[in-house]
Nucleic acid binder design. Structure first.
Length: 200
DNA sequence: GAGATGATTAGCT
DNA sequence: GCTAATCATCTCC
């Protein structure tokens, strides 16, 4: 069952990031369906968040996707090689987003292995945002797609994690964001092997 | 129109 | 642990 758009449009990006844990993310790229459930996310809290592309209300051709109403994808390239997949949340004009950092692969594992150029299923297949996007075949072509569509979508299968199975820590790789780098905006399932390190 | 720069990963030590 | 890879995007001239 696909998540309703209402799941994405409320304004508390932190609770959306928390509630995305355990949800299934699917893509249908070149007629191949791949997916798995989310075990690690990071929240990016709009114009007041120094780690966000939209900090200070910055509006460019790239970031305008984040200003749209919640329930769509935001995909961009980082370090020249890695595609990052984000879920846009909140209402139009509020550039909130949740970065998907890790999933547990469950559907289309063969296809994911091929995309990752691997022969054996190892935890690093979908560990880290760049790896998740590559395994799922996500590219910038999928930017600003509705998460209720047929190319990329998120489902609720009833899987949920209790608060004591979840750990909340500061985000990864945002040291440049000064005091905002310390904000506890990273959510992950404790000890899950697909979560990028540290995972405890 | 050119130059600086990352929400990272993989591979080697 | 450390470091190179690599290019779209943004910023300033």
């Amino acid at each position: 069952m696909k998540l309703p758009i209402a799941f994405y449009t409320h304004s508390d990006v932190l609770s959306t990031a928390r509630n995305l844990l355990g949800k299934y993310l699917f893509t249908n790229i070149d007629d191949m369906v791949t997916g798995g459930y989310i075990v690690e996310t990071e929240a990016y809290n709009g114009i007041v968040d120094k780690a966000s592309h939209a900090y200070g209300g910055k509006l460019t051709p790239r970031t305008q996707t984040m200003y749209q109403a919640g329930g769509i994808s935001y995909v961009y390239l980082c370090y020249g090689i890695h595609q990052m997949f984000n879920v846009v949340t909140s209402v139009e004009g509020q550039p909130h987003a949740v970065l998907i950092r890790a999933i547990v692969p469950t559907y289309g594992i063969e296809e994911m292995l091929m995309r990752r150029n691997m022969s054996l299923l190892k935890p690093n297949i979908t560990s880290g945002p760049g790896s998740v996007a590559r395994a799922l075949g996500i590219s910038r072509k999928i930017n600003a797609f509705s998460l209720n569509g047929d190319t990329v979508w998120i489902e609720d299968t009833g899987l949920a994690f209790a608060d004591d199975e979840i750990k909340i820590l500061p985000r990864i790789g945002v040291a440049y964001a000064a005091e905002d780098a310390l904000l506890p905006y990273r959510f992950f399932v404790k000890g899950n092997v697909y979560v990028s390190k540290p995972n405890k």
